[in-house]
Design a protein around this nucleic acid. Structure first.
Length: 249
DNA sequence: CCGGTTGTTCAGCG
DNA sequence: GCGCTGAACAACCG
């Protein structure tokens, strides 16, 4: 379910509840459900993998984590974590993290860090990356403070697209490749969004879960890498591991 | 039917 | 206080 583009699809799918009053709340979440009843949903927003239900004085934050899911105007055969009833339908969430945000969202979220947001700021991303030259690119792409919304699939596909090994550090990446990485983190996310909408996402994977490189038919390497220790799929031939020779003084 | 995982947080430890 | 590790969560797919 849950990389950034999937959340954008969710946001688009619930637009008919925007401006509607919540007439009943249920679910096994520990947040105060009474506080939501009879309130109007002002807006739905996303930040990276966060889904935000905005009310006048607070926001309910949904994070689907690995296994979370939702259902609109239907129910799955399991307990709802949070269920919102409207006059024109219902919105149900399962096995997710639910939190209340009391602060204004602009104080909590850096919209410029969300790769799918209109306010995405590539220069700000570059500055954050430059500050951590020792970080592996496979970890940097999963850093939600830099690339909010990027998940493990996007990480692998971006590195394949720009022909960079996941084991390259930020500091060793040639400046042009750094630019490409930042650009493709956003660009691939929009491709992901379009493919997912068309139910053809998997068809477009070139390296993620693949056995053979789409470019040169080399055997793809599958390994858990970096501090994040997430699955990396990469071609040892066309994805280059950049290394600078450091001259000690 | 078992193993692995599109993710994050937190406890525990050195 | 830090960085690191592993557990916990818990559903679906192949």
């Amino acid at each position: 379910m849950p990389e950034g583009p999937s959340l954008v699809i969710l946001k688009n799918a619930v637009q008919m509840f925007k401006g509607q009053k919540v007439i009943a709340v249920s679910g096994n979440t520990s947040i105060d459900k009474d506080a939501i009843r009879d309130l109007e949903v002002i807006d739905f927003k996303t930040w990276g993998k966060h889904f935000l239900i905005c009310f006048k004085n607070f926001t309910v934050r949904i994070h689907l984590l690995m296994f979370g899911s939702y259902a609109i105007n239907e129910r799955k055969g399991r307990p709802e974590r949070l269920s919102l009833q409207f006059a024109n339908g219902e919105l149900n969430f399962y096995t997710c993290s639910v939190q209340v945000i009391e602060e204004p969202l602009n104080e909590v979220y850096d919209w410029a860090a969300d790769v799918l947001n209109d306010n995405w700021d590539a220069k700000a991303a570059r500055k954050k990356l430059k500050a951590q030259p020792g970080t592996l690119v496979c970890d940097a792409l999963l850093d939600q403070n830099i690339f909010a919304g990027v998940g493990n699939i996007i990480k692998n596909e971006v590195l394949f697209r720009i022909k960079v090994s996941p084991l390259t550090t930020i500091g060793d990446l040639p400046p042009r490749k750094l630019t490409e990485m930042i650009h493709e983190a956003r660009n691939y996310s929009f491709d992901f969004l379009e493919w997912k909408k068309a139910f053809e996402l998997k068809k477009h994977w070139l390296v993620y879960t693949k056995k053979i490189c789409a470019r040169d038919k080399t055997a793809i390497i599958k390994k858990h890498l970096g501090k994040t220790n997430r699955r990396s799929f990469y071609c040892p031939v066309c994805q280059i591991k950049y290394e600078c020779i450091k001259i000690s003084q």
